[in-house]
Amino acid sequence: MSGYLTTHVLDTALGCPAEGMTIDLFRIGGKDGERQLLKSLVTNADGRTDEQILPSEEFEIGTYELVFHAGSYLDGLDSAANKPRFLDVIPIRFGMNEESHYHVPLLISPFGYSTYRGS
């Protein structure tokens, strides 16, 4: 089995998928922890990306970072919100140490978020 990476975003304040959120994927490497942007994707109506964030043919064991652009998403819902927003850009840095399916979802509201290793 080859490894791959997926995600999805759920808006817990509205009780629905977070459509239209930009997500960046970085590979973290080197002694200095340099970030290499691998791709940017946008969530669909189901709060998922239309393709795997990191498909099996691109998968490598290592450290990665998903950056969720929550502030821009929230701005699209509520243009009257206080600025700056409490949550704007949410980075989640994690390691993948085996060739397996990694699923890193984000549960978001204007004042909090959570994540976990899903299935």
Rank of each mutant, 00 (worst) to 15 (best):
H101K: 07
M21F: 05
S119T: 08
I90R: 00
S114V: 09
T49D: 00
T22S: 00
G3E: 10
N97Q: 12
T7S: 15
G62C: 04
G118D: 15
S56I: 01
Y113I: 07
H69P: 06
H101T: 03
H8W: 12
F26C: 00
L5A: 11
L74Y: 09
V9Y: 02
S119L: 07
D75L: 11
L10Q: 09
T49I: 05
Q36F: 03
L54K: 08
L37S: 08
S2L: 10
V9H: 01
P110Y: 03
H103Q: 11
L5V: 07
E34W: 03
A80E: 09
S2E: 14
V42F: 01
Y116I: 10
E99L: 10
A80K: 04
G47E: 01
T6D: 15
R27E: 15
I23V: 14
P17L: 05
K83C: 04
V9W: 02
V9P: 00
G118K: 13
G33M: 06
D11E: 00
I90H: 00
F111V: 14
T12P: 04
E34I: 08
N44W: 07
Q52I: 02
P110L: 01
E65L: 02
K31I: 12
L66F: 03
P84N: 12
F94V: 08
D75F: 04
T49K: 01
S2Y: 08
T7Y: 04
L66Q: 00
E65I: 00
Y116G: 12
L107M: 13
S79G: 05
T6A: 15
R85P: 03
Q52E: 14
P105S: 15
A80Y: 02
E98G: 10
L37D: 04
G95T: 12
D24P: 09
T63Q: 00
F111A: 13
S2M: 11
D11W: 03
N44L: 14
L5I: 07
M21E: 13
C16F: 05
R85Q: 14
V67H: 06
H8L: 15
A45W: 02
E34Y: 05
